[in-house]
């Protein structure tokens, strides 16, 4: 366990060095947040039928999305990991007496947490102070906030478990684009980053209910804004936890099968 934690710490601390990129990221997230919100405000002013979310809830949801973007978006840039695979240096990793799966898992977790750590606080501080209707809203109750935190932690572990699949697939395809990119687009769409899932047409909602992606961020965010009442969040959270266990197990199994037949590139 200590080895994994030190991997985590290594990535976390080195991730914190990239402050310039973080400033640019914050600016981008602000801009996108405003654009989304202004569009929603314009839509709501025009008026619509059976809307699944109230406007303040939706706006808070957008800011949550923007603040945690570096954590919850599928796209994960770690050229180090992919270069290891492409150059064949990955064989060194194979020779370590630890589970590669968890080495990668904690690397990715550390990197993602570092990225979001640099970004989310300034966003929250400013958006809470914004005038209505653009402001970031408070949670509906302390209990809802607590459940949100728990669900958010499971969601973070879940997105990490999903991200590990990308290098695993790259082990076979030797190209971090292609298939991986297709998965990323689908996962992003169904995790509610473009538009909250409740706005989806019925058919797609059904599809999304059998996929793990809505449990990354859509569930915790909807708990926070009060779109899912506290009394109704036990069941989805159990499903969320089951997905986490399932994906970690599948990931380990897949990696084990692939490593058996992997051919190291060059040497």
């Amino acid at each position: 366990m200590r080895a994994y934690l030190s991997y985590f710490k290594l990535k976390f601390i080195s991730g914190l060095q990239y402050r310039q990129a973080a400033y640019a990221g914050i600016a981008t997230q602000f801009f996108f947040g405003f654009v989304y919100i202004m569009i929603y405000v314009a839509f709501y002013q025009t008026g619509g039928k059976n809307l699944p979310m109230e406007l303040p809830q939706l706006i808070t949801y957008v800011w949550l999305n923007q603040a945690f973007f570096a954590l919850i978006c599928q796209f994960y840039k770690d050229s180090e990991l992919f270069t290891l695979i492409k150059t064949g240096n990955i064989s060194y990793e194979f020779s370590r007496p630890k589970s590669i799966y968890f080495l990668w898992y904690f690397k990715i977790l550390g990197q993602r947490l570092a990225n979001v750590f640099l970004r989310f606080l300034p966003l929250f501080i400013v958006t809470i102070l914004l005038p209505k209707p653009y402001n970031f809203g408070m949670p509906t109750s302390p209990l809802a906030f607590l459940i949100f935190l728990v669900s958010m932690i499971i969601g973070t572990l879940l997105i990490t478990a999903l991200t590990v699949f990308y290098p695993i697939i790259t082990l076979v395809t030797l190209n971090e684009k292609g298939i991986t990119n297709i998965l990323i687009v689908i996962a992003d769409l169904f995790s509610g980053i473009g538009i909250p899932l409740v706005f989806f047409p019925k058919l797609l909602l059904k599809v999304s209910s059998v996929l793990p992606f809505q449990y990354i961020s859509d569930l915790p965010f909807r708990i926070y804004v009060g779109n899912i009442p506290v009394s109704a969040c036990i069941k989805p959270m159990i499903i969320q936890f089951v997905w986490l266990i399932l994906l970690v197990l599948i990931g380990q199994l897949l990696l084990r099968i692939i490593i058996k037949r992997v051919e190291v590139q060059g040497g």
């Binding site: 839509f43 538009i195 989806f200």
Partner: peptide, 9 residues
Amino acid sequence: AMFTRFDNI
């Protein structure tokens, strides 16, 4: 998706 809920913006 937005225009399934709203007629116009």
